[in-house]
Amino acid sequence: MVKIDNVTVTYRPGSSPALSRLTLDIEGSALILGPSGAGKSTLLRALAGLVRPSQGEIWLDNVPLSRRPLAARRMVAYMPQENWLPREATLEEYLRELALLDGYPPTAVRQAVRDVADLVHLRSALPKRLKWLSGGMKRRALLAQALLRRTPWLVLDEPTLGLDPEEQASVRALVRHLSQHRRVIVATQFVEDASLVPDRVIIFRQGAAVAVTQWETFRKAAEGRVWRVPWTPAAVSDGHQFWAPEAGGKTVLLYAPAAAPEQEPGEPVPSHPEDAYLLFMQEQGGRRHG
């Protein structure tokens, strides 16, 4: 169990905190959804022992991380958001070294590396130098190194970022499977990734957890609140209406502030999970810039 107790993280003195007085308990797997800059990555780095809270404490299975940061390294396998990899090593060298460091018996290393490469469909890339891998392959190599480690917790930061649609599908299927059998914490800005851990979706915004929900509830939250109207300058004028364009450009979608308005603004449209996210964020105070 992760117990986050009143945690604040500030990267530079005087700057606004990346996490602000966060208190949160996570039992089992969880998914953290939110916009960029919401503090998701900071929380994951803190769980991996890479960032020390300026205030508060994180307890990971009853181990206080700020007092025992090295314990975190043994308890958490971490996939960072950035594609940090040793460029000159081959994928096989990289994974073998990590397997040895993790304490695999030397006779088991080769098979473990192959198994994990198979899971992320990178078997044929094992002899390649990491610098020659595409962005999507680098992402999967980082997922492989996290999977290789036999830690109680698996912490994945944006596992599908930069992947092409086939890679997204296979990584999502894999992470969903893992989240049912291991304790996995995933951070993402893609609404569709929220189905990876359907039972616990935690929504972050501006350094705080603003909602804890389930995928089935969340994906339908915009039902009855999306309406199609003809494109007019009034419909798309920013400020008083919340709208999205629609393919073809002849109509737009309007997001109604609450379900069942007295007067129907247009034709009702089935909602998409992304509509639920956009409406939720709008109600939380709208976008921060742009």
Partner: peptide, 21 residues
């Protein structure tokens, strides 16, 4: 839109559709 969150992506497409008119 790579790396943009859903709100930033919506803003991008709103701009594009406004530009087109």
């Amino acid at each position: 839109t790579a790396g943009l969150d859903p709100e930033e992506r919506l803003k991008f497409w709103q701009d594009l559709y406004v530009l087109r008119t």
